[in-house]
């Protein structure tokens, strides 16, 4: 059994080894990998395209919401007209039309 040694006596040499030609092979393999793959990066054009797409999305959504609101308003108007007409009897309506046409 070896006696205990201090850090100084053990030294700073690493007790590991690597397979033969490991670093050459690693670098070559990595070179092949990146030759096939382009780095992922968002170009300025792509950024502008995504901003434009976002604005178009907002406009389309706005248009849809406006149409929905408009339709509801028309429906409300139609309902109001029907409601008013319901309150008037037929004789008064005929009277009203005759008066309007004679003027």
């Amino acid at each position: 059994m070896e006696p205990n040694k201090t850090l100084e006596q053990i030294g700073t040499e690493l007790p590991f080894k690597v397979p033969e030609n490991y670093f050459d092979q690693f670098a070559s393999q990595f070179e092949e990998t990146i030759a096939a793959k382009k780095p992922r990066h968002i170009t300025l054009r792509k950024k502008w395209m995504s901003i434009a797409a976002m604005f178009i999305g907002i406009l389309v959504l706005g248009q849809l919401l406006y149409k929905l609101y408009d339709k509801q308003t028309v429906n409300k108007q139609d309902n109001y007209e029907a409601y008013v007409l319901m309150q008037v009897d037929e004789a008064s309506l005929v009277d009203c039309y005759v008066n309007n046409s004679s003027k």
């Binding site: 070896e2 205990n4 040694k5 850090l7 006596q9 053990i10 007790p15 080894k17 690597v18 397979p19």
Partner: peptide, 13 residues
């Protein structure tokens, strides 16, 4: 098999 240290180096690890 890639560890080539002596007893003292193993103890340090």
């Amino acid at each position: 098999s890639h560890f080539i240290g002596n007893e003292a180096q193993l103890k340090l690890q």
